[in-house]
Amino acid sequence: MRSSFNAKAKRGSAVAEVDRGVVLSQPIGFASVSPLLLLLGIFFFGPMVALTFAIFAGGLQGSSGLFTEVLTNDLFQTVAFRTIRISLFVTIISVVVGYAMAYAMWRSPPSMRSIALALIMFPLFTSIVVRTYAWTAMFSRNGMINTLLLKAGLIDKSLSMLYTEPVVLIGMVQVMLPFAILPIYTTLLGLDLDLLRASAICGARERQTFAKVVLPLTKHGAGVASVLVFVISLGFFITPAILGGPQSAMISNMISTEVTTFYNLEGGAVMSVLLLIVTLCLLFVAGKIGSIAAHYRK
C-alpha cells in the first residue's frame, strides 16, 4: 500500500515541478519552444547562411572583390542613396502626420477614437498589392487625378505621374502611417490625464501643456516609431516596384532584378547582406536608445 503510493508520487513528480504560475515542467518548456526555434533556425536563419555561402563560395579574396565591386557600382550607389532618401522622407512625414493624428485622436471623445482607430486598422488588413493598385488607379494617365484636373481645366494634357518619387512617397506613407500612429497613440493613452489637469491648473494653455508636458513624455514613443518606420521603409519592395518603376527603384527592387533578370546571385547576395547589416545596426542602436531612455526615466 505504502510503496505503491510512493511509486505514484514519484511518477507525479517526474511531470510535476509545478510552480506559481508555472504549469509545465522545464523539459516540456524546452520541448514546446523547440519547434519554433527549429523552424526559424532552418528557414529563417538558414536563408541568411545560404546568402553568406553564396558570397564566400569564391573564397575570401573573391568575396572582398564582390563587395568592392558592388560598393563602387554607380547604379548601386544611386539606388542606395535613393533608398535612404525615400525612407528618410517617409519616416519624417509618417511620424509628423502620425503624431498629429494620434494626438487628435487622443483628445477626441471615445466614440470618435474608436471610429478613427478602426479606420487606421483597416489598411493593415488590406493587402499592400491592392492598396498599391488603388494608387495606380489614382495616378495613371487616365486615372482619377488626371481626369479631375482635366475636367477642372487646370491642365490640358494628362500628366504622367506614375513612376516618380513623390508618388512612391505617397504610396509608402500610406502603408507606414498606421505603424507610426499606433505606437504614439498607445504612449499617449498611457499618460495620466491628471498631469494635463495639473498643468491646466498651473495656468498653462493647451499649446504650453503640449510643449511642456505631453511632448517630452511621448518623445520616446515617437523615437521608437521613427526607427521602426525607417527600418521597414528600407526594405520596401512592392510599392516602389509598381508605383516607381525602374526610375524610382529601391534597393529591394535592385536586388530582385540582379537575381531574377541578370542571374547575378552573388551581387544580389552582397546587397542583401549589406541591407541586413544596416537594418540590424539600426535596430541595435534603437534598442540601446530604448533601454537608455528607459533607464533615464527611472
Binding site: 519552444v33 519554433l36 526555434l37 526559424l40 528557414f43 529563417f44 538558414g46 536563408p47 541568411m48 547562411v49 545560404a50 546568402l51 555561402f53 553564396a54 521602426l228 527600418v231 521597414i232 528600407l234 526594405g235 519592395f237 534597393i251 529591394s252 536586388i255 530582385s256 537575381v259 546571385l265 544580389g268 547576395a269 542583401s272 541591407l275 541586413l276 537594418t279 535596430l283
Partner: peptide, 23 residues
C-alpha cells in the same frame, strides 16, 4: 526565444526571398 520569434517581422522580406531562393 522572444528575439527569435520577432526577428522575421523586422528583417526585410527581400533578404528572406533571395536567401530562401538560394537555400
Amino acid at each position: 526565444v522572444e528575439i527569435f520569434a520577432i526577428a522575421p517581422l523586422v528583417v526585410p522580406p527581400i533578404i528572406l526571398a533571395t536567401g530562401g531562393y538560394s537555400l
